[in-house]
């Protein structure tokens, strides 16, 4: 691992200022960053530890009620704590389930919510510094295009990158239309902004090395869940090669608002098949106004995967994702 200096900032101001320098990374849980630093995929010269800020300001690490009936999740809240929090389990079960489907018990105890959103979009070639990768080394080429691409994305890909966004909770948060509060260097309030989580991540396009819209020094301070009563009827379904502690081959977050046997509103998002947490609005439109039947679910799944682009080893994901969605909708409407 490359040497670096370590800073424990005393305030968010200090953190954002220090974080705006070149070759600087923030660290919270560290579960992805430390791994990538060992591989020398990440080689920061300065590391800013955000955890001490949570000791000073407990709201950075906890879940609280919002005046509008939603929930505010502090950026440093740990995945396991959020998953077990009663209001999350009761009002947003899809998020609790997605969190518990992610990683392992130890990692969920370490990983922060914001860090989970900002973990690198990655594939085995990104982790292997001996192979070309446009994300790690822009312009060097994509090893996955002609390589072993079974785990790779089929939605949101570009000619330069087909790596899958690995997060489970981000998929649930996209379905719930959560907002992220962001704080950058500089004086408040100009340094603060709020954006829909769907706007946080970038498609790889011609710059796969850029994964989010955050500028240097910007940190997420909170994730806000809007009130969504029908999210009590929500589900996260994750399909993987083994039953636990593996990345999704396909996953889906769904919520249905059903009255008089008719779908009044629907939320659908996918993980494991896309280059960013993927809200499937086409599937939602296909469901709204329909009766909750197998035919309607299948039609929604077809609509969701219409634009899929597969490669040699991952064509199976098109049908797998459809079946995953149909099964999730069937379970949540039962």
């Amino acid at each position: 691992m490359k040497p670096f200096d370590y800073t424990a900032p005393a305030s968010l101001d200090e953190a954002t200022r220090a974080g705006a320098r070149p070759a600087t990374r923030f660290i919270a849980g560290g579960t992805t960053l430390v791994d990538l630093m060992k591989l020398e995929v990440e080689t920061p010269e300065h590391l800013i530890d955000l955890n001490p800020l949570g000791d000073r300001d407990p709201s950075l690490g906890s879940v609280s009620e919002l005046p509008n009936g939603g929930l505010r999740i502090g950026a440093l809240a740990r995945m396991s704590d959020v998953a077990w929090t009663a209001p999350v389990k009761e009002r947003y079960p899809v998020l609790s389930q997605a969190l518990l489907a992610a990683a392992s018990g130890q990692i969920r105890n370490m990983a922060s919510m914001a860090g989970n959103l900002l973990q690198r979009t990655r594939c085995p070639y990104f982790r292997d510094t001996a192979t070309p990768c446009n994300k790690r080394d822009p312009g060097s080429g994509c090893s996955a295009m002609q390589g072993f691409n079974r785990s790779h994305a089929i939605l949101g890909t570009s000619e330069l990158c087909i790596a899958t966004h690995p997060s489970d909770p981000a998929v649930a948060l996209v379905a719930l239309a959560a907002n992220v509060r962001v704080r950058g260097p500089g004086a408040q309030p100009s340094a603060e902004r709020t954006m829909p989580i769907a706007s946080l991540h970038l498609l790889p396009g011609s710059h796969p090395e850029r994964e989010t819209v955050l500028s240097p020094g910007e940190v997420i301070t909170a994730i806000e869940l809007p009130p969504l009563p029908f999210a009590r009827r929500s589900l996260y379904l994750k399909v993987r090669d083994r039953s636990s502690y593996a990345f999704a081959l396909a996953s889906t977050a769904v919520a249905l608002d059903i009255a008089n046997d008719t779908i009044r509103d629907a939320r659908v998002a996918f993980g494991g098949i896309a280059t960013k947490p993927w809200r499937a609005t086409a599937a939602e439109r296909a469901l709204i106004g329909k009766r909750a039947t197998a035919a309607a679910f299948r039609a929604a799944a077809d609509a969701a995967l219409r634009g899929a682009v597969s490669h040699r080893d991952n064509a199976f994901k098109v049908e797998l994702a459809k079946r995953t969605l149909v099964r999730a909708l069937t379970e949540v409407s039962a």
Binding site: I27, G30, V34, L47, I107, N109, M110
Partner: peptide, 10 residues
């Protein structure tokens, strides 16, 4: 927690 994925200084 996993002691391999965190720095001692933290």
């Amino acid at each position: 927690i996993l002691s391999c994925l965190t720095f001692a200084v933290m």
